[in-house]
Nucleic acid binder design. Structure first.
Length: 509
RNA sequence: GGCCCAUUCGUCUAUCGGUUAGGACGCCAGGUUUUCAUCCUGGAAAGAGGAGUUCGACUCUCCUAUGGGCUACCA
């Protein structure tokens, strides 16, 4: 057997923003493809015309661009197996549906949605299958003339897959091993709807995967129950021996409580479940996105990769290249993973820590400008270097760094109470005088001279530094004091110190 | 209800018959620091329950329980 080229696809339905679980599925497909030198395809499954949402397709493309998940073929870039939008492949599906019809492996059914609903009311656990198809209105129970007439009269119909009962259908799953389901529990799935002349997911999926030469179908666990149906379809078309391999990924679950992670959870728990912000075109509702929330795409990718897979070592911080190097379907978990949002924050923190300050600077400058604070690139670089170990998100740097550019207008009460002592005004005045006469205001020289002064006078270091910090920052936080004063410059440093002496309350000794 | 999948610290997970059950997030304590953060050290914290198989089971089998998914002319 020759090793066939790895070709995988991510095939979302354009019904809204891309769910984070879908992002992970796409990511695993991508890692797998790159790992094996294969191709990654983006196919749009828009066979349900009723659920089409404008903008969703562009959103999907943009989301993957942001994340760094690249495609080799797809709806947005073409390729030799197109078109990649299922609504543009009507004729193709029709041909295959007819093939099944002619072979007697599918049949035409006229039962209306209303009639089916009535049947479900009438018979509990009603299923359109070998048991019941004999009592329905279809090409198995009606004569050919009747069928032709009904169609000629313009009656809507569907094509159903004829499933033979009593067969054990085996699905070989790369993650779960062999899963066996008896065909008797499967229903005669609708493959095609005459109403919009489109197939349903199942038919389109099998036909496209075959035509696009997909080698591995890596998708969410929610598809596992219909995998036997897909196996049967491959058989019906005579493609059983060239069918793709399956791998069903565990689901992403709610962080607390039960169930699959949903759009609502994000709103409720205060974290995004979508890669990019999304505005519902109908309701105008806005759902937050990882990008807009300040996440770095690398952090999101790293975080997501580890939800359901691990390299088998303690390595946790991995670039896309490293993930590709290490990824293996054999190391994917079988059980669903609760979405650990806290860990996502930690990943972002780590990526900010390791990120080049020059890459953070433009975003920082922009965010500061929005707050009405003009910052030069040089200033930004200094401040980011000093402050980024305190931030989980770049935007957290904005309030944290404000004091570098804007003098405090009020002082943190708790800190003032603790750090501004009876002798503080006098000490600050003395320190101000020392600084004023200092020729070299570099942080190094300041440190040398100030510490020498403290030592000579036998002052308490913490006493001086904490009061000084309160004067310049307004609270008890921030980097090394001399870095702050040096950044501020002598003039501003002295101004803030005098202001603190004026404004902060005097205490009895 | 039926069918399928799953089940190790609160969470993400390692372990592929023999381990003091390891790591990470979060949490707590201590250290470093003029403060906060970073960083370092330490701590609490787990094999759902019950039967087997075996000299030996977290690991294999079965049952139960629990969780999850599917059960559309949606994907």
């Amino acid at each position: 057997m020759t090793e066939q080229q790895v070709r995988v696809r991510f095939a979302p339905s354009p019904t809204g923003p891309l769910h984070i679980g879908g992002v992970r599925t796409a990511l695993y497909n991508y890692l797998f493809a790159r790992k094996h030198g294969g191709k990654m395809i983006l196919r749009i499954e828009d066979t349900d015309s009723n659920r089409f949402v404008p903008g969703a397709e562009d959103y999907i493309v943009e989301a993957f661009q942001w994340l760094g998940v690249e495609f080799d073929e797809g709806v947005h870039m073409g390729g030799e197996y197109g078109p990649y939008r299922q609504s543009e492949r009507r004729e193709i599906y029709k041909k295959y549906v007819d093939q099944l019809l002619e072979a007697g492996k599918a049949y035409i059914a006229f039962d209306t949605p209303e009639e089916l609903a009535a049947k479900r009311e009438e018979i509990k656990n009603f299923q359109y299958d070998a048991q019941t198809r004999g009592m329905m209105r279809n090409s198995l129970t009606l004569s050919k003339e009747e069928v032709d007439q009904l169609i000629a009269d313009g009656n809507k119909y569907v094509v159903r897959f004829l499933i033979e009962p009593g067969r054990d259908v085996k699905v070989n799953d790369l993650i779960r091993g062999e899963v066996v389901i008896n065909s008797s529990i499967l229903d005669d799935k609708v493959l095609y709807k005459s109403a919009d002349q489109l197939p349903t997911y199942h038919l389109a999926n099998i036909v496209d995967d075959h035509l696009m030469k997909i080698s591995h179908v890596i998708r969410g666990e929610e598809w596992l129950p219909s995998a036997p149906l897909h196996v049967l379809l491959y058989e019906a078309f005579g493609w059983a021996d060239i069918a793709p391999a399956f791998a069903h990924l565990p689901l992403l679950l709610k962080p607390e409580g039960n169930g699959k992670l949903s759009k609502r959870d994000g709103d409720r728990l205060g974290f995004p479940v979508f890669p990019l912000q999304w505005t519902d075109p109908k309701t105008g509702d806005i759902s937050s996105g990882y990008r807009e929330s300040g996440y770095l795409p690398e952090a999101v990718v790293n975080f997501l990769a580890l939800l359901g897979w691990n390299p088998g070592t303690d390595e946790e911080l991995m670039s896309m290249a490293r993930l590709i190097e290490l990824f293996d379907l054999d190391r994917c978990n079988k059980s669903g993973a609760k979405f650990d949002y806290e860990k996502g924050r930690w990943f972002n923190h780590e990526y900010i820590l390791h990120m080049d300050d020059a890459l953070i600077a433009p975003t920082f400058i922009e965010l500061m400008a929005e707050e009405g604070v003009e910052v030069t690139t040089e200033q930004a670089l200094t401040v980011i270097g000093l402050m980024k170990s305190r931030a989980n998100f770049i935007k957290e740097l904005v309030p944290a760094c404000r004091f570098f550019f804007v003098a405090p207008t009020e002082y943190d009460k708790k800190t003032a109470k603790k750090r501004w002592k009876a002798d503080s005004p006098a000490l600050m005045a003395e320190l101000a005088e020392l600084l004023e006469n200092m020729a070299d205001f570099s942080p190094e020289n300041q440190e040398t001279e100030v510490k020498a002064w403290i030592e000579a006078k036998e002052y308490h270091l913490g006493n001086i530094m904490n009061a000084w910090r309160l004067s310049l920052v307004g609270e008890g936080k921030g980097p090394h004091m001399f870095d702050i004063s040096a950044f501020l410059g002598k003039e501003e440093t002295l101004r803030r110190m005098r202001q603190a002496i004026d404004v902060l309350p005097r205490k009895e000794a």
